[in-house]
Simulated scan of single mutants.
Amino acid sequence: MERCRIFLEKDRLMSYDVLKLSGIITGKDDHEAISFNARHKSYDSNTILRILDHQKKYKCSNLQLANYFRLSRNTVTKWKKMFL
């Protein structure tokens, strides 16, 4: 509950915040849930930019970033071409 409080006290949640909350609440997902969620994700431009900022901040490769956020490497590359 304490770890979720930061997000729940916000006036407006972004997609990135919902992803973080979901990870906190569920902990480790099973393979079936991960597969289902991967097919139904959508990101707004603010969330995409925050994900790309995460890559810069922690000096991750596209593969590392994709694994961390459970994305495709091709998605990360596409976002970088579109937004950077």
Score class of each variant (00 low, 15 high):
Arg12Pro: 10
Leu13Phe: 08
Leu13Ser: 02
Met14Trp: 15
Met14Tyr: 15
Met14Pro: 09
Met14Arg: 12
Ser15Gln: 10
Tyr16Asp: 04
Tyr16Asn: 04
Asp17Ile: 05
Asp17Thr: 03
Asp17Tyr: 10
Val18Trp: 13
Leu19Thr: 07
Leu19Trp: 08
Lys20Thr: 07
Leu21Gly: 14
Leu21Trp: 00
Leu21Met: 15
Leu21Ala: 14
Leu21Thr: 01
Ser22Cys: 10
Ser22Gly: 12
Ser22Ala: 13
Ser22Thr: 07
Gly23Met: 04
Gly23Val: 01
Gly23Cys: 03
Ile24Cys: 08
Ile24Gly: 05
Ile24Met: 10
Ile24Gln: 06
Ile25Met: 15
Ile25Gly: 08
Thr26Leu: 15
Thr26Lys: 15
Gly27Tyr: 12
Gly27Phe: 13
Lys28Ser: 04
Lys28Pro: 03
Asp29Leu: 13
Asp29Val: 00
Asp29Ile: 00
Asp30Gln: 03
Asp30Pro: 01
Asp30Cys: 02
Asp30Arg: 02
Asp30Tyr: 03
Asp30Glu: 10
His31Ile: 07
His31Ala: 11
His31Leu: 11
His31Arg: 15
His31Lys: 15
Glu32Phe: 13
Ala33Tyr: 14
Ala33Ile: 00
Ser35Val: 00
Asn37Phe: 05
Asn37Ala: 06
Asn37Ile: 00
Asn37Cys: 05
Asn37Leu: 06
Ala38Glu: 10
Ala38Lys: 12
Arg39Met: 12
Arg39Thr: 04
Arg39Val: 02
His40Pro: 06
Lys41His: 04
Lys41Cys: 00
Ser42Phe: 11
Ser42Trp: 08
Ser42Tyr: 09
Asp44Gly: 05
Asp44Lys: 15
Ser45Arg: 07
Asn46Trp: 03
Asn46Thr: 07
Asn46Val: 06
Asn46Ile: 06
Thr47Cys: 02
Thr47Gln: 05
Thr47Phe: 08
Ile48Phe: 04
Ile48His: 04
Leu49Thr: 06
Arg50Glu: 14
Arg50Leu: 11
Arg50Cys: 06
Arg50Gln: 14
Ile51Cys: 08
Leu52Ser: 10
Leu52Tyr: 12
Leu52Ala: 09
Asp53Met: 04
His54Ile: 04
His54Lys: 10
His54Phe: 14
Gln55Thr: 02
Lys56Ile: 07
Lys57Gly: 01
Lys57Ser: 02
Lys57Ala: 04
Lys57Ile: 03
Tyr58Met: 01
Tyr58Asp: 00
Tyr58Ser: 01
Tyr58Gln: 01
Tyr58Val: 00
Lys59Glu: 04
Lys59Pro: 01
Cys60His: 13
Ser61His: 03
Ser61Leu: 03
Ser61Val: 00
Ser61Arg: 06
Ser61Gln: 06
Ser61Tyr: 02
Asn62Gln: 08
Asn62Pro: 01
Asn62Thr: 02
Leu63Tyr: 03
Leu63Glu: 06
Leu63Ala: 08
Leu63Phe: 04
Gln64Asn: 05
Gln64Ile: 00
Leu65Cys: 06
Leu65Asp: 11
Ala66Trp: 14
Ala66Thr: 13
Ala66Cys: 08
Asn67Met: 05
Tyr68Ala: 02
Tyr68Glu: 09
Tyr68Pro: 07
Tyr68Cys: 02
Phe69Trp: 15
Phe69Asn: 00
Phe69Lys: 01
Phe69Asp: 02
Arg70Glu: 12
Arg70Ser: 11
Leu71His: 08
Leu71Ala: 06
Leu71Tyr: 09
Leu71Trp: 11
Ser72Gly: 11
Arg73His: 09
Arg73Pro: 11
Asn74Met: 14
Asn74Ser: 14
Asn74Gln: 14
Asn74Trp: 13
Asn74Glu: 15
Thr75Glu: 12
Thr75Trp: 12
Thr75Pro: 03
